[in-house]
Design a binder for these strands. Sequence first.
DNA 1: CGTGAATATTCAAAATATGAATATTCAACG
DNA 2: CGTTGAATATTCATATTTTGAATATTCACG
Lengths: 175, 175
Amino acid sequence: MRQDSAALPPPVLLGLLMARPRHGYELCKEFNRTLGQVWRLGLSQLYAQLKQLEDAGLVAAQEEPQPSRPPRKVYHLTPEGREVFLEWLQQPTPYLRQMRVDLMARLYFFRELGLPGLPELIARQKEVCRAQIERFERLAAEADDDFRRLVLEFRRGQVEAALRWLDRCLEPVGG
Amino acid sequence: MRQDSAALPPPVLLGLLMARPRHGYELCKEFNRTLGQVWRLGLSQLYAQLKQLEDAGLVAAQEEPQPSRPPRKVYHLTPEGREVFLEWLQQPTPYLRQMRVDLMARLYFFRELGLPGLPELIARQKEVCRAQIERFERLAAEADDDFRRLVLEFRRGQVEAALRWLDRCLEPVGG
DNA sequence: CGTGAATATTCAAAATATGAATATTCAACG
DNA sequence: CGTTGAATATTCATATTTTGAATATTCACG
């Protein structure tokens, strides 16, 4: 029975490598300390992701031999990895179900890495939300069946809540 | 790259078999027509689920030979299957991320099968939501870090929206 | 008579997730 | 001291899920 956690994470490992090169175990600790509240990633899963990223040429590893320990691989971003990450960071998430994970992760990196462009992303994300709300309303008006309307109303409510949250999250960080 | 759909569905196939026995393809059509808007289930995935349910003894199949076609398997609920389904139906969902799918499905079956007990389920679900909100507020008060607070506020907003929706969804169905 | 859609199911393969296995160091406990 | 358990670090085999292709028949359309 598979855990009901959010699907595979976005280029988050790339983001964690933006600050500096790290090896797998270190990434895991850092991840759990910060983004771990948003979703779970097992240690061996993390290594698997890392391998995929390496195959895709987005990260590269340097073996670091250690006296009397198995050598560890220190991963760093390739230029392409950096590009992919920065590109991902700017994109609003098109679906509600990804917001919990994707949007949170983006927000985290904007703050953590002190990158510019957060207000623009939020503005774009709000636009996406408004479009979704309109769409749900239109579909609800056309809907011939009660259940469909209920589903659409549920979703609209969720997106509206996200929109309100987006409005607040540009306010001064200290509260 | 895996599709970002909601995790594996709850005992929904059991629910579809409550009305009457059906074979796989028929279930798929019925599913897509109704609950298909809530999440996606591929045809071969559905057959896989069916197989699991059969192994678990919750459904049983009867081969129905057809002239000049491959025989089809008509599935029906076993008494245990029926029990499991009815038990599942009464339970509120403990996590926000399951609401989109689980709660919607339950609601659908309550209406579709004309079963009693919906107001009780909704009351219990609201209780769960209120408890979650309190928890988020408590954690946010304790939180030492901004990002954590933002995440918790996002979640609280989502649960509050769900709560408001639950309030409305007992109103007369016709609107 | 060929083409594509609908009916119906199975199977192999790819992608993901889980958990165990391996190996070393260090601190604490009695 | 010896050993037990936690922390460091990574790999691998297996289980589970998902996808897509393969198979086979009928029917409607032009």
